[in-house]
Design a protein around this nucleic acid. Structure first.
Length: 256
DNA sequence: ATGCCTAGTGATACTAGA
């Protein structure tokens, strides 16, 4: 089973990019972030025509997450528990291919310091609490998405520039480590322990041409899934396409 | 320190992204 995560940065503006990539990569399951579309503007028919079931959590203007699957899905959860006042569409959890799949769009958190950074940390703490419960169930679980965290210096083209950035602040890296220590495997880092792997290149300053990238999109695997991990990578070329998202799709293959 | 780029909203310069 091949699963991908792709911060699409506007699903309607980038529907041609998404459809072209789906045809090339043919993933079985896809987690999408940053739909930037209200619930009723999700292109369900076009994705159905491409062979996918879809469940999504839209929001006007910002955020928004979706999970697509070639097999039917059962929805487990919309949104993270722990804050009834949180209105952002950033978390969706389903069962498909006999696995629990979570689609995560962690808050960006910039500028640091400030209320957006506080929201990011609070959201991360809620994720850590929820992930602990999922891990304890000893099910096959994949937490996929845009974590807006570069976990280590290897994940940043120029780490010294990012020390005060919410994507790399020590509090956020520490939160990511706390999550991992529950027993999750960072799939791409596990497959490539020493390589610089990027999933994001800013639109600004010719970041793509300079390979000034960041690794922000991650798959965290529960032990049962980690034992069955076969391969993974980033479809870098998608970042070079016309009307590209600033993220490229990342993917892994696991034995069913 | 700022703009550099891009999308959404809505029709204008804004916010937000990372």
């Amino acid at each position: 089973m091949k699963i991908a995560t792709f911060n699409i940065n506007g699903i309607n503006g980038r529907l041609p990019v998404l459809l072209k990539w789906l045809k090339l990569a043919s993933p079985d399951v896809v987690c999408l972030q940053e739909l930037k579309a209200p619930q009723e503007k999700f292109p369900e028919a076009a994705l159905q025509k491409a062979g996918y079931h879809a469940l999504w959590l839209g929001q006007k203007s910002w955020n928004g997450v979706a999970i697509m699957s070639k097999q039917p899905m059962q929805e487990l959860r919309q949104g993270l528990p722990g804050d009834r006042t949180d209105t952002h569409s950033r978390y969706l959890e389903v069962i498909t291919y006999e696995k629990v799949i979570a689609c995560i769009y962690l808050p960006n958190g910039n500028p640091y310091p400030g209320p957006k950074f506080d929201y990011k940390l609070a959201w991360f703490k809620r994720l850590i609490r929820h992930a602990k419960k999922l891990h304890a169930m000893e099910l096959p679980v994949i937490l996929a998405g845009d974590y807006n965290v570069m976990p280590t210096e290897l994940d940043v083209y120029k780490p010294e520039k990012y020390l005060e950035n919410a994507l790399f602040r020590k509090e956020i890296r520490a939160a990511y480590q706390t999550l991992l220590k529950q027993g999750w495997t960072d799939a791409l880092r596990h497959l490539y322990p020493d390589e610089a792997i990027y999933t994001f290149w800013d639109y600004l300053r010719h970041a793509w041409e300079r390979n000034a990238g960041l690794r922000l999109d991650h798959f965290l695997l529960s032990p049962i899934v980690a034992a069955n991990l076969q391969s993974g990578g980033v479809d870098k070329k998608v970042r070079g396409w016309e009307k590209a998202s600033d993220h490229a799709p990342a993917w892994i293959e696991v034995l069913d």
